[in-house]
Amino acid sequence: MCFIIIRRIKKEKPMEDNYNELLLRCASQDTQAFNELYTAFSPRIYSLLLRILRQESIAEEVLQEAFLKVWDSAASYSPSKGKAFTWVATISRNKALDKLRSFKSRPQETEITYEGLEFVSEDNQPDDNTDQKQDIARLENCLDGLKDEQKECILQAYYYGYTHQELSVKMDKPLGTVKAWIRRGLETLRDCM
């Protein structure tokens, strides 16, 4: 059988264009571009890694590994694959999840606590990117369409890397119930997003 990835070549927004361009320059070993990309993305990526990994030293290690992978594989990036931030965030998050799964037990929790979407402050709202605002609004709207427990499980899994089993313990609910919440929540999201 022969299956092929099909992807629309998208029109990028100006800010995204800038980041995409930086990432493309990384492919030609442009360290200045890489530094700019790191400066732009690392604070959010590090924040996400801290939530998943719970320990600063481990988050720093994974951040370093993730950006080295970005540097090494920048040549495989194409704007048609999506936004540069999405590409970098996915690499970083997958590295964090792999690291997390390699531990016998989850690192001790730090001061970082679950914040839902409340941490989306005014400061974090993009000023000049209407499309990004629309993406956020669309996702928030979809999440609001979920039952509270479904939304809770999905956000906890995304931001903190919890597995079904961990969510079951954390929420004091049977494993099957948690799995069903996530499955139904994702089905609803799939139809909405």
Partner: peptide
Amino acid sequence: FAVLAEQVPEVKP
């Protein structure tokens, strides 16, 4: 899902 990652508050490494 990356839209969620864009919403975390920044923490400078």
